[in-house]
Computed example of a mutant assay.
Amino acid sequence: MRFKTDLKNVKTFSKLTAALSSLEKVAWMRLDDDTVRFTVIPDQGSQVWASLSMDHIFDSYQLQSAEPHNTINLELPLGPLHRALKSADDKNCTSASLRLTKKNNVPLLSMTITTTTTSSSGPAYSRFAGRGGGSGLARDNLGGAGPFDDDDGEFPVEPLETDLNREREKIITQDIPVRVLHPEHVETIMQPKVREPDVHIQLPPLLSLKAISDRFTKLAVAARTGSSSSAAAGANASSAAASSYSPKLEISANMHGSLRLALTADSLDVASQWDGLENPELDPGQLNCPLEDHPSTRFREGGPGRWATVRVDGRDWSRVLSVGRLEGRVIACFADEHALILYVYVPQYDDVSAEDSVVTYYVSSYSM
């Protein structure tokens, strides 16, 4: 089993691991000849299935195993991987590589980072003196003519460059412990199956959506804290209730370009709406039914008042929206009262002709 590669698009790789680590501490990484996949399945909350071409984040990679398509399955901690990538995402970093190795019979992903720093040395020597100077190179100690005297005893005066910029190379190695997974165990990891979506819509920038979602969540927590304070016997009970409480946000969309985020609680009823969004056209060749029979067609024909709705945990939803740091377009597919699937398209900036990689989030809906 062998895996060795140089890293490219380190910034994108770092942002992806940051988004994944907000949901869970551990991920499954699957490598094969063409694709690298990251899967995060927490005990509770949203699942992530990310699929990127090997060329998106790796360069000059070598991959070899006894499995078909040279498949290697690894379980890895996201925190140490993200910290190592942050070290590689530095303006002084000239190269970074990753390889699967073993120390003391423990499998490791070893990241080697090469950085350069420039140091400047201060002046070490005075400049040559001109006429009347004290260096006396034109005459000997006895006042006679020196071996380099010319007729007038003068020499051309030039500065001695002593402020030398020296580049120094530093190599940093960070070892990330991993587990090599058996293929039979991996086969039990299955993506959730969701029915055809009722509404599909391109979301506004996720970071702005996250800001409003977080605001709604804080309002709900503050309102609950206030009501708990009046009823609770002490501040500790109120604080514990607030820390464990996460409100349910209601997200709705229609097939006429509108998205709505709402929060309804005992003392709160707030909502925010976006209009003029895009409902992308479906490819009939990828559908399991004729386009006219697709659920989204019925929702479109139902007019702007026909909404598909899901209810999500406020804090989990905030962690999902952290994937907005990848700055790709996001298509949300609503299965009414059942689930929300987000397709995050990660652009490959160094090759505009290449297909975008996709990070898929599965968010289950809470019942009323």
Rank of each mutant, 00 (worst) to 15 (best):
P192M: 08
K193P: 00
K193N: 11
K193S: 10
V194P: 03
V194R: 14
V194S: 06
R195F: 11
R195I: 11
E196S: 14
P197V: 10
P197S: 14
P197Y: 12
P197A: 13
D198L: 04
D198K: 02
H200A: 11
H200S: 15
H200R: 14
H200I: 12
I201M: 08
I201C: 07
I201P: 03
Q202W: 03
Q202K: 09
L203S: 06
P204D: 10
P204S: 08
P205W: 09
P205T: 07
P205Q: 06
L206K: 00
L206G: 01
L207M: 15
S208Q: 15
L209F: 07
L209K: 00
L209Q: 11
L209A: 11
L209H: 01
K210V: 03
K210N: 13
K210Y: 11
A211M: 10
A211F: 02
I212M: 08
I212E: 08
S213P: 03
D214K: 03
D214F: 00
D214W: 00
R215C: 02
T217K: 08
T217G: 06
K218I: 03
K218H: 08
K218Q: 14
L219R: 05
L219H: 09
V221N: 02
V221W: 01
V221H: 00
A222S: 13
A222M: 09
A222D: 13
A223G: 05
A223R: 06
R224N: 11
R224H: 12
R224M: 10
T225R: 15
G226K: 14
G226R: 13
S227K: 14
S228E: 13
S228H: 07
S229G: 10
S229Q: 12
S230L: 12
A231H: 12
A231P: 00
A232P: 02
A232F: 06
A232G: 04
A233H: 12
G234R: 11
A235V: 07
N236I: 01
N236F: 07
N236P: 00
A237M: 08
A237V: 08
A237T: 10
A240Y: 07
A241V: 09
A242Q: 11
A242F: 05
S243V: 10
S243Q: 14
S243P: 01
S246M: 03
P247M: 02
P247W: 02
K248E: 04
K248Y: 08
K248H: 10
L249E: 01
L249W: 03
E250I: 12
I251E: 01
I251M: 13
I251H: 03
S252C: 04
S252L: 07
A253K: 02
A253S: 11
A253C: 10
A253R: 06
N254P: 04
M255D: 07
M255H: 06
H256Y: 09
H256W: 15
H256N: 10
S258R: 11
S258W: 03
L259P: 01
L259W: 09
L259I: 10
L259R: 05
L259C: 05
R260K: 15
R260S: 09
L261F: 06
L261G: 01
A262S: 15
A262V: 03
L263G: 04
L263R: 04
A265F: 01
A265M: 11
A265E: 14
D266A: 15
S267G: 02
S267P: 00
S267H: 12
L268R: 07
L268T: 04
D269G: 05
V270N: 03
V270Q: 09
A271S: 14
A271R: 13
A271G: 01
S272N: 12
S272P: 00
